[in-house]
Amino acid sequence: MSHLNRRNLIVSAGAAALLPGAARAQKRYGPGVTDTEIKVGQTIAYSGPASAYGALGRAEAAYFKYVNDRGGINGRKINFISVDDGFSPPKAVEQTRRLVEQEEVALMFGMLGTPLNTATRPYLNQKKVPQLFIAAGSEGFAQPDKFPWTMGWQPTLRVEANFYARHLLANHPNAKIGVLYQDDDFGKELLAGLKEGLGAKAGMVVAAESFQATDPTVDSQLISIKGAGCDALMLFTYAKQAAQAIRKNADLGWKPDTYLHLGSASVGATLKPAGLDKSVGIKTGGFMKDATDPQWANDAELKPFFEWFKKYMPDANITDSLNLAGWAYAQTLEQVLKQCGDDLTRENIMRQAANLKDWRNPALLPGSLINTSPTDYRVIEYLKLQRFNGTVWEFA
Rank of each mutant, 00 (worst) to 15 (best):
residue 258 T to A: 08
residue 313 M to E: 15
residue 189 E to I: 03
residue 355 N to Y: 03
residue 356 L to E: 10
residue 371 N to R: 10
residue 147 F to T: 13
residue 203 G to F: 03
residue 55 A to F: 08
residue 28 R to N: 10
residue 207 A to C: 01
residue 250 A to T: 06
residue 306 F to Q: 02
residue 382 Y to M: 06
residue 122 P to Y: 07
residue 139 E to L: 06
residue 45 A to I: 02
residue 300 A to E: 11
residue 233 L to H: 12
residue 387 R to E: 14
residue 225 I to H: 04
residue 315 D to E: 14
residue 320 D to M: 06
residue 129 V to I: 15
residue 315 D to P: 00
residue 54 G to N: 09
residue 360 R to S: 03
residue 68 N to P: 00
residue 125 N to I: 01
residue 194 L to H: 11
residue 41 G to H: 13
residue 43 T to A: 14
residue 298 N to P: 02
residue 144 P to Q: 05
residue 5 N to H: 15
residue 129 V to S: 10
residue 191 L to M: 04
residue 114 T to N: 15
residue 176 K to Q: 08
residue 57 G to E: 13
residue 86 G to L: 05
residue 72 G to N: 07
residue 26 Q to L: 12
residue 251 D to Q: 15
residue 383 L to D: 03
residue 273 P to V: 06
residue 386 Q to H: 10
residue 11 V to C: 08
residue 350 M to S: 08
residue 338 K to V: 07
residue 147 F to V: 04
residue 175 A to W: 10
residue 32 G to Y: 14
residue 180 L to E: 10
residue 165 A to G: 04
residue 151 M to Q: 13
residue 269 A to I: 01
residue 178 G to S: 09
residue 396 A to L: 11
residue 153 W to L: 13
residue 179 V to W: 12
residue 149 W to Q: 11
residue 287 F to G: 02
residue 241 Q to D: 14
residue 261 H to N: 11
residue 166 R to I: 02
residue 196 E to I: 03
residue 310 K to T: 14
residue 338 K to S: 05
residue 118 T to M: 14
residue 190 L to C: 00
residue 76 R to W: 01
residue 364 L to F: 13
residue 138 S to N: 14
residue 333 L to M: 09
residue 334 E to G: 01
residue 109 F to I: 06
residue 344 L to I: 04
residue 177 I to W: 09
residue 126 Q to F: 04
residue 376 D to Q: 06
residue 87 F to D: 07
residue 245 A to M: 13
residue 282 I to Y: 12
residue 207 A to M: 01
residue 343 D to A: 02
residue 150 T to P: 00
residue 266 S to V: 00
residue 387 R to Y: 04
residue 293 D to T: 13
residue 97 R to G: 04
residue 339 Q to E: 12
residue 101 E to A: 09
residue 316 A to I: 01
residue 181 Y to F: 15
residue 271 L to T: 02
residue 309 F to I: 03
residue 182 Q to I: 02
residue 226 K to L: 00
residue 233 L to C: 06
residue 41 G to R: 13
residue 363 A to E: 12
residue 107 L to N: 09
residue 351 R to W: 08
residue 7 R to E: 09
residue 43 T to W: 12
residue 260 L to M: 12
residue 86 G to R: 08
residue 31 P to L: 01
residue 35 D to Y: 06
residue 159 V to C: 04
residue 345 T to A: 05
residue 250 A to N: 12
residue 385 L to D: 05
residue 41 G to V: 04
residue 202 A to F: 00
residue 313 M to W: 11
residue 235 L to K: 10
residue 191 L to V: 02
residue 27 K to W: 00
residue 28 R to K: 14
residue 376 D to L: 00
residue 85 D to Y: 03
residue 118 T to L: 15
residue 80 F to D: 01
residue 354 A to S: 10
residue 235 L to V: 00
residue 266 S to D: 05
residue 130 P to W: 09
residue 15 A to Q: 05
residue 350 M to V: 03
residue 188 K to Q: 08
residue 72 G to A: 05
residue 249 N to W: 10
residue 230 C to P: 02
residue 132 L to F: 02
residue 380 I to D: 11
residue 172 H to R: 08
